[in-house]
Design a protein around this nucleic acid. Structure first.
Length: 417
RNA sequence: GUGGGCGUAGCUCAGUUGGCUAGAGCGCCAGGUUGUGGUCCUGGAGGUCGCGGGUUCAAGCCCCGUCGUCCACCCCA
């Protein structure tokens, strides 16, 4: 056993998974940059207060914050998500609106780790600030759906809902509180605790005894005002025009307290574990204001990398890319030939690797095989003597000699480039 | 934070009712006569049995603690 291991809830991502991560982010970037979103790279930690504005009732904030005091006495926290940072950046830089950004990177939450849930976990996401145009809602949601399909996923279910405006939300919360309070005796003990904290969250309960109560609970639709209702209808209409399949789930409330109006969630229907939500988001029209900026509407989503990749595994989609070199150089003379040949090939845009330590021909050929290279170049005493190279395509038993001066041309020819 | 399962070579795991120098497969290394990998054969390296206590003549096997991991709950990506 090694003396040191990664901290709980963290891990190393090695090849080939690391290549898959990068490809994942590339696909995401391509998807959203096609719609005009630009990359933002916020810091990984901020003043604790930035995140406290997400709402004290949010568990991510109240229980799971990775915070500490730095040497300057500042109370900072590793970001639990990036929406707050993006809004803070908006207030700090005041870009022209609509401001459409995307991000990718790790977030931190101090939780008990499980599969699909880590203390350091990666998300990709987008945020769009400055307009409450329902077409923007549909664009954001549609990009999420588009991304999943670009990955090759087909079993992703999209649920949408509206929470109404700030006043509606509070009113609905009150309605729910009264409703559940009337039936408190049949409510699970966990949900009773939740009820006191945040009545909306009771709708999220997956506990058996609560299911019937939840099914019969009053729906938000009956509580919200006409304006929010009209907005929601427009969003649904725009989604239909985009051919984005969805289903309205009026029990969908989501974990962050800042959501207003549109909320949505992507669930993989092939994942077995409890962690089937692979992404989610919504409108957060009060957040910029809460961070000291002008009243600015905003909407966005975040998708979990780990969980989405688990979904990919389950669907047999988006395999890790093969990260192999094209040419492998075997040099049993002195190692210097391998160096100059590799150098020359790389300068010509051909990826090339070699063996070290002047090992036996057999060992070097074995390394060539392992490297996945499609071509091996062999330099032994004979080749060194005549200034030739033996070129061996790895998938055939045949090989031939080429003049050293024709190296690059011959290699490009064999690689068909 | 609560409850439960697990923790033996780099990896996946065996290890019988506690009993001699702890095993297998894969991987790795070296060979298999005269420079050549992917199959096959032979040999080799590699383990304070997570860690710390305890019970016992004797513990990888039992007990306690601790750490890690997995599963469920909570919550969420």
């Amino acid at each position: 056993m090694p003396e040191f291991k990664t901290s709980p809830g963290t891990r190393d991502i090695l090849a080939p998974d690391s290549g898959r991560w990068r490809a994942f982010q590339d696909v995401f970037a391509k998807t959203v940059e096609a719609a005009g979103y630009t990359l933002i790279i916020p810091p990984m930690f901020e003043d604790l207060d930035v995140f406290l504005r997400l709402g004290e009732a949010t568990e991510v904030v109240s229980k799971e914050m990775y915070d500490f005091h730095d040497k300057g006495g500042r109370h900072v926290a590793l970001r639990p998500e990036q929406t707050a940072s993006v809004c803070r950046a908006f207030v700090e830089h005041r870009p022209t609106t609509p401001w459409k950004v995307w991000y990718a990177g790790p977030n931190f939450r101090y939780e008990k780790p499980q599969q699909g849930r880590y203390r350091q976990f990666d998300q990709v996401g987008i945020e769009a600030l400055g307009t409450d145009d329902p077409f923007l809602d549909a664009e954001v949601i549609g990009l999420g759906a588009k991304f999943f399909s670009n990955l090759g996923l087909t079993r992703v279910k999209l649920s949408v809902n509206t929470l109404g405006d700030a006043g509606d939300r509070a009113r609905y919360s009150q309605v729910l509180f009264e409703y559940f309070s009337r039936h408190e005796s049949t409510l699970s003990s966990e949900s009773r605790a939740t009820l006191a904290r945040n009545p909306l969250r009771v709708l999220d309960s997956k506990r058996k005894p609560d299911q019937e109560l939840i099914a019969n609970a009053p729906a938000i639709r009956d509580t919200i005002g006409g304006e929010a209702k009209a907005h929601f209808e427009s969003v649904l209409g725009a989604l239909e025009a985009l051919n984005v399949p969805y289903q309205v789930n009026n029990r969908l409330v989501r974990g962050l307290d800042y959501y207003r109006r549109t909320t949505f969630e992507f669930v993989s229907t092939v994942l077995e574990s409890a962690h089937t939500a692979i992404g989610g988001g919504g409108r957060y029209d009060g957040l910029v204001e809460a961070l000291g900026g002008p009243a600015t509407p905003g909407i966005g989503f975040a998708l979990g990398l780990d969980r989405t990749l688990l979904a990919c595994d389950a669907e047999g989609a988006f395999a890790a890319p093969k990260n192999t070199v094209e040419v492998f150089v075997v040099d049993t003379v002195d190692g210097m030939h391998a160096q100059t040949i590799c150098n020359l090939l790389r300068a010509s845009g051909v990826t090339a690797d070699r063996a070290y330590d002047l090992r036996s021909m057999k060992a070097q050929m074995k390394a060539a095989d392992r490297s996945g290279a499609s071509v091996a170049l062999i330099i032994g005493p004979g080749e060194a003597q005549n200034s030739t190279i033996t070129l061996r395509p790895m998938n055939s038993g045949e090989q031939y000699s080429i003049p050293r001066s024709d190296l690059v041309g011959e290699v490009l020819k064999v690689l068909r480039r």
